[in-house]
Nucleic acid binder design. Structure first.
Length: 135
DNA sequence: GTATTGACGATGT
DNA sequence: CACATCGCCAATA
């Protein structure tokens, strides 16, 4: 649980944005950060997913948030402390039909040209307002 | 209470 | 193109 209410709002915003990623598609932490209005904090997006609760009782949990569809800007699954985790994420993506290629160094990369999700700034994402207001 | 790390990204060298 | 540094800030030690 986040330390402050403001941080909690950030967590929810991130989870909400991640849920918008369509099945079989992927996006980056930086992109999510932009969507929630804080492009300077891609790391915190990672923190949100890292602390994504597994309890199905919680509003956003490991079951209803497609955390697996979030990768880094380099187009590869971010290698974290536990290698199994990244490998697990790769498996989850492959289960959605996403082709994950393993590099010589064990890098699990996803072809963004094929599976990348490049949406416009989604309106009413978390209640911030329309990006261009109205054209 | 302070120090270090980390599921990132942009810049600088 | 590879590696180093800064910013960002919550979580952990």
């Amino acid at each position: 649980m986040p330390r402050s209410d403001e941080a909690e709002a950030f967590f929810f915003a991130v989870y909400s944005a991640v849920r918008e990623i369509p099945y079989g598609k992927v996006t980056t932490y930086g992109h999510i950060a932009k969507l929630v209005g804080t492009p300077q904090r891609p790391r915190q997006v990672g923190i949100c997913l890292k602390h994504l609760p597994e309890d199905p009782d919680v509003r956003y949990n490991h079951d209803n948030v497609p955390w697996q569809r979030v990768i880094n800007s380099k187009g590869i699954i971010s290698p974290r402390s536990q290698p199994s985790g990244a490998r697990n994420q790769a498996a989850a993506l492959q289960a959605e039909g996403v082709e994950v290629t393993t590099g010589a160094l064990g890098e699990l990369s996803v072809d963004f040209a094929e599976f990348g999700w490049f949406p416009e700034i989604l309106p009413s994402e978390e209640g911030e307002g329309t990006p261009n207001g109205e054209d």
